[in-house]
Amino acid sequence: MKTHNVQVGDVSRELPIVEVAPGVNVALFNMLGDTEVTEAAGKALARLLPGDIDVLVTPEVKALSLAHVISRETGKPYIVIRKTQKPYMVDPVAREVVSITTGIPQLLVLDGFDVPKVKGRRVAIVDDVVSSGGTLHSLRQIIDEVGGEVAAVLAVFTEGEERSEVTALGHLPLFPGS
């Protein structure tokens, strides 16, 4: 299997290159179950978090542990935007997005219970990889809609094109089809 080497702080990983859609190959970065990478990335991003941020917002599920570590290190609370609407949610705010790693439209849902934690606050979006920007765009829409201000975007990697608005620890290229 072809791999792509990445460095996160002082941790190194060989990412498998996988086809996620016909002709679209990506280096698959999955922090789930990788405590060492999550800790290294979370501590590095915690140092880059602007001091005036009130709350972190992250989409479930792969970046969840990352947001936990940044929160633990900085003392800032975090909120998770879910991918399914739960029966216990109160007045949920939902947006649909097409993600590059799933290829299918998916839902992003903010529980109405969490709205007061975002409204009028300075928000940092936290994600593992910002690629097409589709998830990021939908997250911005939801945060805007409930009256929050997106003041920073933090990710472990950008992918495909570099993005000046994203504070990232590294960049992943896309790989041509084999």
Binding site: L32, T35, T38, E39, E60, V61, L64, S65, H68, V69, R72, V80, R82
Partner: peptide, 14 residues
């Protein structure tokens, strides 16, 4: 298993 136990499992692992 996802989702609520995930940060707990991460912290226990750490």
């Amino acid at each position: 298993v996802v989702t609520n136990a995930l940060p707990l499992a991460h912290e226990l692992s750490h």
